[in-house]
Design a protein around this nucleic acid. Structure first.
Length: 600
RNA sequence: GCGGGAGUAGUUCAGUUGGUUAGAACGCCGCCCUGUCACGGCGGAGGUCGCGGGUUCAAGUCCCGUCUCUCGCGCCA
């Protein structure tokens, strides 16, 4: 007989009755009845009830075994009597009568419960992550993650892509987020950077002629954490040669759609997968107030500036903004006119918390609008408002007025808030779409200059000619995102493979030629030796898993993660280097005055 | 860097207008129990109330400072 097991803990059934079997696993629970003792033995596959009965010499020893100890048990599989069958367990028709048992590894008293969710806080869970990972939910999440990664790899290979590897010790690249730096021992004073993404390498693979690349790529960014952000995360990184923007979408849509269809019901609730028509960035910002709209939210924003600019509308608070070039946005909410006053008051104080003066509204219980600002809007203007926003009786329109950027932002946030307050968000569906036509540049208010709005490697729409003739802030890029249920799950672009266009593009953002040559010499040189037009995208794998697992943050779908401050309380990372290490690296620390001293 | 929330037993939490010995549940330890499957019963141990200072006859509770966790903003694919 095998030293540890003949079966897994989910395997034994009625058909095994009478056989000798051996199981190994963790003690999930023990129920000691004095004369008879039940052990629920758990491994990653399932749980089997094992019995120590009255005449067993093991009875006394087994009664002292603590939960989560590892044991091996050997004995006969017996059928349970009809009244003791547990229909809730797959193995509930049988039990293993223990003849022999070995305590392989006793468990100390555990800091939180494994068999049930005791609500233990995240810091304790992370400090003992190996215990946390034993819990059923985490086992399921990590298994889902593994299956998602396999599902992506399989689909990518089937679609004609090859999986590549690229360096993790590389050069800092000046765009985007802050880099993690790694000091070089051989080159005092110089540092490698961990890649924020393999962006340049995958483009170089296109120049090398590999045509279709993908990688499950680790990406590192030294920025403050969020629920949907980690210091290191994984992307399904993709790049293709000789393709149009549309072909990138057409290639990746079935991969992601197929993946979601495969795992849609993972949590046990039926989910539809809907891929909606693509949306321009401009429309997304106007209609949803976000470049990653949650399309399960049925509310739509409309521009109604013209109504509040009319002479027969006397709401001066808005007129002031309009005079300064601002705009008014309306959110029509169906059938909430009869909501109690508190519904509107709550939204109003929410808006004030967001920094707005309030959230004005007109309620159209009947043809005639009511509410705090209705009296400033003449009947004719109300008629126009009804036409613009598509109001029926019983609806309410909420208003936001500010500069265009601010109005979009607040209207977008209000759209989400009202949706949840009114319980309008559609359930049981994953709604995807591509958001396209992102602007090439934006005005950086702080630096008071034009900057790349996404990554500088994107091809401007219209190429060189557009760059030369158009107001930079009006130029669109072949830059797109993929959005699911309000999460940005992918970002990508057709790349700029032409040194001449690149030079112009950087010049518009205020970078002279020598800066470009210095910072991107590797890639720029490559483009001078015959570069294929190419483009691609990268999907955030952790986010895909988080959405499929219905988890509120990325830490729930990663086996080992750091806390919100990017510290690992289990491994004690980051930690202080030894003097020897620092000497090797020629580094002397210059720490801030306030020195944190931690108790051991 | 900024703002919201939190910090009391191993864990999750309660703790009144400041008042005498700080509680509950789960876990842990001991005893009892032959059919449970979230077993049950009896008993017990376990607390720097995050830390430091202050007010007070008296502080878990009030004040000041500080640290930590968490969510968000800034930042960032």
């Amino acid at each position: 007989m095998h030293s540890y097991r003949t079966h897994k803990c989910n395997e034994l059934r009625k058909s095994h009755v009478g056989q000798q079997a051996r199981l190994s696993g963790w003690i999930h629970r023990i129920r000691d009845h004095g004369g008879v003792l039940f052990i629920d033995l758990r491994d990653t596959y399932g749980v089997t009830q094992c019995v120590v009965d009255q005449d067993s010499p093991l009875l006394e020893a087994a009664g002292k075994w603590r939960n989560e100890s590892v044991i091996t048990v050997t004995g006969k599989v017996k059928a349970r009597t009809p009244e003791t069958v547990n229909a809730k367990m797959p193995t509930g028709e049988i039990e293993l009568y223990i003849d022999e048992a070995t305590l392989q590894s006793p468990a100390a008293v555990i800091p939180f419960q494994i068999a049930e969710d005791d609500g233990a806080g995240e810091d304790v869970r992370l400090r003992h992550r190996y215990l946390d990972l034993r819990r059923e939910k985490m086992q399921r999440n990590i298994r889902l993650r593994n299956a998602v990664i396999f599902g992506l790899r399989k689909r990518m290979w089937e679609t004609g892509f090859q999986e590549f590897q690229t360096p993790n010790l590389t050069a800092s690249s000046p765009e985007g987020a802050r880099d993690y730096l790694v000091p070089s021992r051989l080159h005092p004073g110089k540092f490698y950077a961990l890649p924020q993404s393999p962006q340049q390498f995958k483009q170089l693979l296109m120049v090398a002629g590999f045509d279709r690349y993908f990688q499950v790529a680790p990406c590192f960014r030294d920025e403050d954490g969020r629920a949907d952000r980690l210091a290191e995360h994984y992307q399904l990184d993709v790049e293709m040669s000789f393709v149009t923007e549309q072909e990138v979408h057409d290639t990746m849509t079935p991969v992601i759609k197929g993946l979601f269809e495969e795992f849609a019901d993972w949590t046990g609730t039926k989910h539809k997968v809907e891929w909606l028509p693509k949306l321009t960035y401009k429309d997304a910002m106007l209609k949803y107030g976000s470049d990653k709209p949650d399309l399960r939210n049925p509310l739509v924003i409309t521009d109604v500036t013209e109504v509040f600019a009319r002479a027969d509308v006397t709401f001066n608070a808005f007129k002031g903004y309009i005079a300064k070039g601002g705009c008014v946005r309306a959110i029509r909410v169906p059938q909430v006119a009869s909501q109690p006053r508190s519904f509107f008051d709550k939204l109003n104080s929410w808006a004030q918390g967001e920094g707005a003066p309030g959230l004005g509204y007109i309620a159209f219980e009947t043809e005639e609008g009511k509410g705090p600002i209705a009296k400033f809007v003449a009947p004719e203007a109300q008629k126009r408002l009804r036409d613009l926003t598509g109001i029926s009786n019983g609806d309410v329109v909420f208003f936001v007025c500010n500069t265009e950027a601010e109005a979009n932002k607040l209207a977008g946030a209000a759209r989400d808030r009202i949706c949840d307050d009114a319980g309008l968000r559609e359930k049981g569906v994953y709604k995807f779409c591509w958001v396209v036509d992102f602007p090439m540049y934006e005005f950086d208010e702080r630096a008071q200059k034009i900057e790349f709005s996404h990554n500088p490697f994107s091809m401007p729409q219209g190429g060189l000619e557009t760059l030369e003739k158009t107001d930079p802030l009006q130029i669109l890029a072949h830059q797109y995102d993929c959005v699911c249920n309000g999460f940005e799950i992918s970002s990508g672009a057709i790349r700029n493979h032409r040194p001449d266009i690149m030079e112009k593009a950087f010049a518009l953002a205020g970078y002279p030629k020598d800066v470009l040559e210095r910072k991107f010499s590797g890639m720029l040189n490559a483009f001078r030796f015959g570069a294929p037009p190419h483009g691609g995208c990268a999907f955030g794998i952790d986010r895909l898993v988080m959405i499929l697992a219905h988890e509120p943050n990325l830490r729930e779908v990663n086996a080992f993660v750091m806390n919100g401050q990017y510290e690992d309380p289990m491994m004690n990372a980051p930690s202080e280097p030894t003097a020897e290490q620092l000497k090797d690296l020629h580094i002397r620390l210059d720490l801030p005055k306030q020195k944190k001293t931690e108790a051991a």
